[in-house]
Design a protein around this nucleic acid. Structure first.
Lengths: 331, 331
DNA sequence: TTTTATAATGAAAACGTTATCATGAAATCC
DNA sequence: GGATTTCATGATAACGTTTTCATTATAAAA
């Protein structure tokens, strides 16, 4: 690969001048510029992003980091797509790290991202008091949190109103006459899981429905978790007549379990899930779900990040997007 | 962030010695080593991957590129997970580029990857004669292709037997008595689409079933494509009694369309899709599908890549994995 | 004409590594 | 006891950029 040096030599100038035309900074004679431009074309010169990155923190190397908990979850895929679309149109590349809900892996990836000298980071940390991430924020790395925040740390954040979304879902079930409503939660370390639980509890109490502890299950935010926890619920002496699931993978696991038990949805048991998916209407039966604007979350987050990169001093923004209850045949 | 220089200063040695203990190369006095190690710990030193990368192509900078056509497709997500797991255990980070089936975007990403000085690349190129990718291969970048190859270029490749997979799917439909079997294809520029079509045609001819051109639809490998093309099929004066869909997004689109028409599956129309998904059994009805070992594909590909990086000269390997027909209720 | 801007360019430092060479001291060999 | 090897270390070039400073030549101002 041709370097600036090659260009300089071929055009008979110094690399300084080449740099000047490359970044059109400073003034350079038209003839020289033309000569350099030609050399660049001839040698198919491509600047080394690595060298750029090394050279100066000040100049943007156009690389963003994205740290997500679970690439298998379509929600994060959509967030990622949103991020990526904005990044792409602004000429940023992204280095994507999926820590699979493994905090050790998360730590390693944060180290790597730091050592790759990224310009900024969009992260959904494993938990709210992630010391390493906090440190990076404090050291001045532009960071935007998505889906979950960072306790006691002033940082841009894009989330949805999880409590309200859950409330609407459960309220919907109640209004349909359901009384034994179960909740299958994701990881309790994740704030959104707790907010969703809060929404669930608030809805029950709003309608004076007693909370039955054995109807609340805490799992791991994954398909298998949804499967086994729903299994437990269905094996209860007095099984629930409705279940509210904490995220889309849990929902799919729960569906699997209900089908295994040959129960009719919604006759025997109703189900409403957090997170809508493109194929939710093709599920058996089509799924009532709380839709998060995942793609938007990604876009907003990336916009905020680019803003912060160009204006590091600006005040932090906490963006709370709305959820939407989409009623289909499962309730 | 502390640099080697800071360490050297604090330990009262030169950076050369620091480098030596860091890479334990050369010999260094035990006492000095201890002093340096302490300094490293004290200053929380982290090597700059960027500087490493810049310094020498020879030493591995532990960064891989992954170029995929469509992150929305769960198949590629699984491939990605396979890649990532192997990369992670071998201490590689990955820079993930999703070109969304947009060749312009693909080109840009290839440039970026090159200029990021990655150690190797796993790619599913938009088409088999991708000149840019070919050039990169020829220039010595270790590359492994997944899901699709590169024409006239000797390169490692991991694919499944698409023709056979499609054949089995269609044969299954035929054996169930279906005769008007439609095929909704993905992008024809993608080899796998063509191989799947070949399998479809081979199966028909094996059982002396005439090919009906209007039952073969070519689309864009996306959800919307599946939706509108299936729509067209169902609006035919003589609609099909079965449909074989070319990938998972197409399948979901087709399902949506069939449901819209209020047709019963499989009574009115049977459907079998290429690509199984974790929630395929939760679809309405549970879906008969050709399963690709996506996660394995990713793992194998990454293993091949790491091999090639450490041994650039070794002969190219073409790995063809088996598909599996999973029969459920949609047929 | 002398001074002063301005335009056009180059030299060189810096970023954080790795790797080569050089140097001195201690240890081993014959 | 001189020659040679081994150990321990440092200086420095190189990777490919950006940026600061210096230098010349020319144009404008006095």
């Amino acid at each position: 690969m041709a370097s600036m040096n090659d260009i300089a030599r071929r055009a008979g100038v110094s690399i300084a001048t080449v740099s000047r035309v490359l970044n059109n900074s400073g003034s350079v004679n038209e003839a020289t510029r033309a000569r350099i431009l030609k050399a660049i074309k001839d040698l198919k010169y491509q600047p080394s992003r690595v060298a750029k990155r090394l050279r100066s923190k000040s100049v943007s190397s156009n690389l963003l980091g994205v740290l997500i908990p679970d690439i298998q979850n379509p929600f994060y895929v959509d967030v990622l797509r949103g991020i990526e679309d904005i990044a792409y149109t602004n000429n940023y590349a992204i280095i994507m790290c999926n820590y699979s809900q493994d905090e050790k892996k998360e730590k390693l990836y944060l180290e790597i991202l730091q050592s790759e000298a990224i310009d900024g980071l969009i992260a959904a940390p494993a938990n709210e008091q992630d010391v390493q991430l906090k440190k990076m924020v404090r050291e001045g790395l532009p960071v935007v949190c998505v889906d979950r925040g960072l306790q006691d740390e002033d940082v841009d954040i894009v989330v949805v109103d999880n409590r309200e979304g859950a409330f609407k879902a459960v309220e919907h079930l109640i209004k349909l006459g359901r009384r034994r409503i179960a909740y299958i939660s994701g990881l309790q370390t994740i704030p959104s899981s707790r907010y969703r639980e809060k929404g669930y509890l608030d809805a029950l109490s709003s309608y004076q429905i007693p909370v039955v502890p054995e109807l609340i299950k805490h799992g791991d935010s994954k398909y298998e978790g949804g499967l086994v926890l729903c299994e437990e619920l269905l094996n209860l002496p007095e099984p629930p007549d409705a279940v509210f699931t904490g995220n889309n993978l849990i929902t799919l696991g729960a569906l699997e379990s209900i089908h295994k038990h040959q129960l009719r949805i919604p006759d025997d048991i109703a189900i409403v899930g957090f997170d809508d998916m493109i194929w939710s209407s093709s599920l058996n039966p089509s799924l009532t779900a709380v839709r998060q604007p995942a793609y938007d979350i990604g876009q907003r987050a990336c916009e905020l990040l680019l803003q912060r990169i160009s204006e590091p001093g600006r005040a932090c923004i906490k963006m709370i997007l709305k959820t939407e209850l989409i009623v289909r045949r499962s309730t």
